[in-house]
Design a protein around this nucleic acid. Structure first.
Lengths: 356, 356
DNA sequence: TTGTAAGCGTTATCAT
DNA sequence: ATGATAACGCTTACAA
């Protein structure tokens, strides 16, 4: 005859039910849908659970129900400030709900992403949040085959796997250039690091705007697959000046790069914005307090994360959004570094918002 | 009579076992301890699993075995760069192992931490990584009552719950001040934000060093519970100059603050380091490329995370570390901002390492 | 609204 | 080294 497993006298649903004088299934219902119980039993189960400090066993729940209350999140990097804000939004939205987050790092590899997607989906997540719109064909297929709500974040496009929230990086890049052109800049350089799909789209916006203005010149473009950093900003800028000494403005695909450019200008005694205008991307906190203050394209990262998680949760509760694709827009935060007429110092940054 | 649940024809262990011609339990053993099988069966189970692309059901595994392969990680903030590096280390260490990470944010609240600890521990995590050494009495009790490996990170102390990896923040703070004193600074201010336990200990190091030198003066200290930011650095520095106009150096408890101070000096035409020396803390990437380059206390954040996770995993595999407390030390990265004789520009930063 | 019975997919226990 | 059997704690399906 078999065994008696170690009786850890843990509090199970059965104990709660016994104390409340109901059947286990009734107690179970209380935790999932209290409304379904009569008021009397509801109260009794509730106090029984509290008295025994019952905590549901998630593994048992997952096994029995064939689904979990875990929302999987796939992001390309843990280090990048941009994703830190997104994550904060996601965690805030999930906080207090029944759902929890399972985070995984794709390291900017869509093959790694595909692999993680497989692992996640076999565990039946409640929902999924994935970065970007450039998944592999296989990834798309398995996502479409899954039946959980999925939100693609950071970008928007016309073919969401399910839902989408983000903004147009190419439009945002274009807006940065329009601003510089309006300020009278002509030889506008582009500095890009990592060159992930989003940075590439910012570049496309730059390229389109410059081409339209009849100003595009390949020698104004300096990029690298290396990850972004302040130091790298200085290096790329130095390269740019070598290739195109007459550069009068720089659009940096990341704020880190922009700060590096600022420092490099200081080192070379290039005055900003008089001799060199600088525009960054993301509007990290330090941009507004640098000297001179640095213009940047503000993106709504926290809101993106928060809304993405909320969209998943709402969908799980049967409330699908009217529009599957949400455009959060961006704003060009115009500050001293790109204002030829100089010092908007005391005044607030000029905010030129776009939300398509 | 009851039901026939929807037959999803999922691949279970049973299918694998059948194809391999063994009993389910033998197949189960293959995945947990292949060595225990005879070579023949091992090969057959392996190929059967591959052929059916079997993926184990973690919920069933957790329920049956009464434990999970999840390492819980409790950190106070998702936004802080410092923790981003730690997390990267943790994820890197876990990557490829059987373990996964469950992350939770305590928001710098030890009560929130206690709550999360309860939730985590009822789910029987494989291990736990918690930030700091200032848990509530209750938290300590439930951690000690748990039987999983636990690593406290970011700090060291004499009474680990289990294991510990970090460094002495007070020693590090003291080292920063020793350096400034050696450079001839006397009126050394302290700027601190958030004032979490680690910042407080850095302050204690500052206070001790200043007191020993007979230079401590409360009017040189400006702190705030607000979260750190570059902008805040400028604000706190302005306050400091109001309280103590003769300040000749600032020790900032975070690099963000230090950068803010640098910008504020620029705004006020205070020359760095001639009129004002600046030292930061953490040595974030930008410190080395600012103009002037900024001195900072380097901490080994990535290694901390990586080693913490490794320590948990090793402990789970029966290899406990010789020493339960690991001191990762710190280094004062001396750069231009605190070097009176000026420009160490071309030369590498002077690195003064300490590892107790 | 509530209860009964079966079963979710795996592993622990004991036996061989 | 391998297997038979009974849990693990909960929820689904169905009935009342």
């Amino acid at each position: 005859m078999a065994r008696k497993r170690s009786k850890l006298t843990k509090v199970r649903l059965t104990e709660v039910a016994k104390l409340a004088g109901v059947s286990p299934i009734t107690a179970s219902r209380f935790f999932r849908n209290p409304e379904a119980l009569s008021v009397g039993k509801r109260v009794r189960v509730e106090s029984a659970a509290k008295e025994l400090s019952y905590v549901p066993n998630l593994a048992a729940r997952a096994l029995a129900s064939q689904r979990t209350e875990v929302i999987g999140v796939l992001i390309p990097s843990l280090t990048n400030n941009v994703f830190a804000d997104v994550l904060r939004g996601i965690y805030d939205a999930v906080d207090g709900s029944r759902y929890s987050i399972q985070l995984a790092n794709t390291r900017y590899s869509i093959l790694q992403e595909e692999k993680l997607l497989r692992v996640f989906l076999t565990q039946k997540p409640a929902g999924l949040i994935v970065t970007g719109i450039d998944q592999t064909r296989e990834s798309r297929a398995i996502m479409e085959a899954s039946d959980c709500p999925i939100v693609q974040i950071m970008e928007i496009g016309t073919e969401p796997v399910d839902m989408m929230i983000g903004f147009s990086h190419s439009d945002a890049g274009r807006a940065a250039i329009s601003h510089l052109l309006a300020e009278g800049c002509r030889r506008i350089g582009f500095l890009g690091a990592r060159m992930d799909p989003r940075v590439q789209r910012r570049f496309l916006g730059y390229q389109a705007a410059m081409t339209e203005a009849g100003l595009f010149d390949q020698s104004l473009v300096v990029t690298t697959p290396a990850p972004t950093s302040v130091t790298l900003g200085g290096t790329l800028f130095a390269d740019l000046l070598t290739k195109a000494p007459d550069t009068d403005a720089v659009f940096c695909a990341n704020d880190d790069l922009a700060l590096g450019v600022l420092f490099e200008c200081r080192r070379r005694h290039i005055s900003v914005p008089e001799q060199m205008a600088i525009v960054g991307f993301n509007d990290l906190e330090f941009m507004g307090s640098a000297v001179p203050t640095l213009t940047s394209v503000r993106t709504n990262r926290y809101e993106m994360g928060r809304n993405a998680a909320t969209m998943v949760i709402e969908a799980l509760e049967g409330r699908r959004p009217e529009q599957p694709v949400v455009d959060l827009g961006y704003s060009v935060m115009t500050r001293q570094s790109s204002t030829r007429r100089g010092h908007a110092a005391a005044s607030a940054p000029v905010r030129e918002s776009v939300q398509n």
